[in-house]
C-alpha cells in the first residue's frame, strides 16, 4: 500500500466528493418535489395526471440511471435542448429519484387511517389544511425509513455520472488507476469516500426514524 500516494491524491477525492454531494443534494431536493407532486396526484386520483404520473413512475423505475443520463446528454441535444454535464446529472437523478420518492410518500399516505382524514374533514378543515396538519405529518413519519433508503440509494447512483464527463468520485478513481496503476489505493480511497459520506446519513436516518416513530413531532417521549 503506497501511503504517500494516498496522501497526495486525497484532495482530489475531497473535491470530487464535494461535486458528488452538490449534485446529489440538488437532484434529491428536486426528487422530493417531483415525488410529492406525483404522489398527491395519485393519492387524490386526479384524472389524467394520475395516469401520466403512473406511466412516469414505471418508466423511471424500470430503466437504469445510466440509460436515462445518456438520453439526457446525447438525446436531448438532437431536439435542440442542450444541458451541461451537471444539469444532466441533476435532472437524471431527479427523474429517477422522483419516482422512488413518489412511491415512498404513497406508502406513508396509504398507512394513515382513512378515519383520520375524515376526522379532519369533520372539523371543517379545508383539504389543504387537512393535508398539512393531519395527513402529511403522519404520512411523513411512516415514510421516513423508505425516504432515507432512497436518499442513500440516490447518492450511490451518482457513481455513474462519470459517464457524462463529470469528475465525480468514481471518475477520479478510474482516472488514477488509468494513470498510475495504483488500483488498490485508488479503490480503497473510493470506498472510504463513499462510507464517509453515507454512514453519517444512515445514522441520521435511524435517528429520525426513532424520533418520529409515533409521528410525535416535538413530543417524543420514551414509552
Amino acid at each position: 500500500m503506497d501511503w504517500g500516494f494516498i496522501n497526495r491524491y486525497t484532495p482530489m477525492y475531497v473535491e470530487a466528493a464535494g461535486l458528488t454531494l452538490r449534485i446529489a443534494a440538488a437532484g434529491i431536493a428536486l426528487s422530493f418535489v417531483i415525488g410529492a407532486l406525483c404522489c398527491l396526484a395519485r393519492y387524490f386520483r386526479v384524472p389524467v395526471l394520475r395516469q401520466i404520473t403512473g406511466a412516469y413512475i414505471q418508466l423511471a423505475r424500470n430503466t437504469p440511471l445510466l440509460v436515462q443520463l445518456f438520453f439526457l446528454y446525447f438525446g436531448l441535444p438532437k431536439i435542440g435542448v442542450r444541458l451541461s454535464s451537471e444539469g444532466c446529472a441533476v435532472m437524471g437523478l431527479a427523474f429517477l429519484g422522483g419516482a422512488y420518492m413518489a412511491e415512498a410518500f404513497r406508502s406513508g399516505l396509504d398507512a394513515v387511517e382513512k378515519t383520520q382524514v375524515e376526522a379532519g374533514e369533520c372539523l371543517g378543515l379545508t383539504n389543504a389544511q387537512n393535508i398539512r396538519y393531519v395527513l402529511f405529518p403522519q404520512a411523513l413519519a411512516t415514510s421516513i425509513p423508505a425516504i432515507c433508503a432512497n436518499v442513500i440509494f440516490l447518492i450511490k447512483e451518482t457513481s455513474v455520472f462519470s459517464a457524462v464527463a463529470l469528475a465525480d468520485l468514481m471518475y477520479v478513481a478510474k482516472d488514477l488507476i488509468g494513470m498510475y496503476y495504483k488500483t488498490d489505493e485508488a479503490l480503497l480511497m473510493l470506498v472510504i469516500a463513499y462510507l464517509t459520506i453515507l454512514l453519517p446519513i444512515s445514522a441520521l436516518g435511524s435517528w429520525l426514524e426513532r424520533r418520529l416513530r409515533y409521528a410525535g413531532f416535538g413530543y417524543q417521549r420514551s414509552v
Binding site: 387511517e113 378515519t115 383520520q116 375524515e118 376526522a119 379532519g120 369533520c122 396538519y133 393531519v134 405529518p137 403522519q138 413519519a141 409515533y214 409521528a215 410525535g216 413531532f217 413530543y219
Partner: peptide
C-alpha cells in the same frame, strides 16, 4: 361528529 374509534390525531 364523534366516532366510535375516537380518531384523535396521534401526532
Amino acid at each position: 361528529m364523534v366516532f366510535q374509534s375516537y380518531d384523535l390525531f396521534p401526532h
